[in-house]
Design a protein around this nucleic acid. Structure first.
Lengths: 101, 101
DNA sequence: TCACCACATCGATACCCATCGATGTCCGTG
DNA sequence: CACGGACATCGATGGGTATCGATGTGGTGA
């Protein structure tokens, strides 16, 4: 497994985790996972989250920069979908039993 | 699966993730996991992390409050060890494929 | 072309947190 | 009982961030 864990690796893993370490982003991801592999447009995420549209865009931007969600544009709408492989990979990194046989 | 995900669940998951979403805490957990099930005393964690002892205690305190590490005291030493089951459970929560069969 | 809709960005505000030096607490030792 | 070592807590400081209203942008339809 990863015996060393460099500073860069630790920083990268911390950055990815920080992207999810927010209640609203947890909710967003949960909804996108539940809708996978379909996408959900921003307009359908504002109301259930209870926050304004700029905040939703802000959180989705952070999740997208972390490589955890994707965006597909159709007309003036933006459909976001979860990257299941990225989430699985992230889970494997924090799971101690993942590295063992 | 988790169909609903209440506000409390989202907040709890976010809080647990926030506990790991720090480069130094990632490093601490990595070392404790590598040393599991043995414990590591604070004095052996200060030098490799490159931060002062109060900061190490601070981070270990946060990890302990999140239920991710345990503390065993022996004399004036404090031995910390990772809770592998808690980490596995946390990984399962953020892994989309974990809920499926 | 003009008005409109969905979304992104900007700017300001308020809040949380990581870090460290100094200090406190507990225990074992001489 | 004083001393010292190991760890925890305190207080101050600096940097990061979530949130919103206002505004910008791009595409659609009349």
């Amino acid at each position: 497994m990863a015996p060393a864990l460099s500073d860069a690796d630790a920083a990268a893993l911390a950055a990815a985790l920080k992207a999810i370490a927010d209640p609203n982003r947890v909710k967003l991801l949960h909804r996108l996972i539940a809708a996978a592999p379909e996408g959900v447009c921003v307009c359908d995420l504002t109301a259930p989250l209870g926050i304004e549209q700029p905040s939703v865009s802000h959180h989705l931007r952070i999740l997208r920069q972390a490589g955890l969600v994707e965006r597909r544009r159709k007309a003036s709408f933006a459909y976001y979908s979860a990257r299941l492989d990225a989430l699985d990979a992230l889970a494997a990194l924090i799971s101690p039993s993942a590295g063992r046989a």
